[in-house]
Amino acid sequence: MIPSIDQINERILLGAEGRARYIVALAGPPGAGKSFRSAWLARTLNERCPGSAAVVPMDGYHYDNAVLEPRGLLAVKGAPDTFDVEGLRQDLVRLKRADGDVAVPVFDRPLDLARAGGRVISKSHRILIVEGNYLLLDEGPWPALRRDFDLTLFLDVDDDVLEQRLIERWLGMGQDHAGAIAKARDKDMLNARLIKACSVSADIDWR
Rank of each mutant, 00 (worst) to 15 (best):
G179S: 10
Y22S: 03
H62Y: 10
A192G: 01
D159F: 06
A182H: 15
L113A: 10
R89T: 03
P105I: 06
A75P: 04
R94G: 03
Q164A: 13
A182P: 05
I8T: 06
L73P: 02
S124N: 01
W40P: 00
D203N: 14
D148C: 08
A53Q: 05
L166G: 03
P29L: 00
L145G: 03
K77Q: 11
R21N: 03
V104P: 02
R126Y: 00
V85D: 05
R165V: 08
G15M: 09
S4G: 15
I12P: 00
V55A: 02
E139C: 02
A32H: 07
F36N: 01
R146G: 05
L162N: 05
R19G: 00
I2R: 15
K183P: 08
P30K: 06
E168A: 13
A182S: 15
K187Q: 15
V157E: 12
L41Y: 10
E163L: 14
L153F: 11
V200L: 09
A178N: 12
A32L: 08
P29V: 08
A39G: 13
L92W: 04
I204Y: 03
M1K: 14
D101P: 08
L135S: 06
L137G: 04
L73F: 02
R19L: 11
L194E: 04
E86W: 08
D112N: 14
A98T: 03
D91L: 04
P57N: 08
T152F: 07
F149H: 08
R21S: 07
G28R: 08
G51W: 01
G100P: 02
L128P: 01
D160C: 11
S4H: 13
R43T: 13
L92G: 05
S122P: 00
I195Y: 04
L155D: 10
K187E: 13
L128H: 02
T44L: 10
A178V: 11
P143Y: 04
R147F: 10
R109E: 05
D64V: 00
R126C: 01
I181Y: 10
V24I: 14
W206H: 07
R97H: 14
F83L: 12
T152Q: 11
P57W: 06
S4V: 13
I167P: 02
A182K: 15
I204L: 14
P110S: 02
F154E: 13
I23D: 04
R126W: 00
L68T: 06
P50Y: 06
E131Y: 09
D150K: 11
L26E: 06
A79Y: 14
P70Y: 14
D205S: 14
H62R: 12
S38T: 07
E10R: 12
P110E: 03
G174S: 11
L14V: 12
M173H: 15
R147E: 15
W40Q: 13
W142I: 06
S4A: 13
A54E: 04
D188M: 07
Y22Q: 05
G174L: 09
G15P: 08
D203I: 07
L128M: 01
L155P: 09
L190A: 09
G132R: 10
A114R: 06
V161Q: 12
V67E: 14
D150E: 11
Y61I: 10
E69K: 13
V106F: 05
V76I: 15
V106A: 04
L45C: 02
W170Y: 13
C49I: 14
E17D: 12
G78V: 15
P50H: 07
K183F: 12
A27E: 06
D186Y: 09
M173F: 15
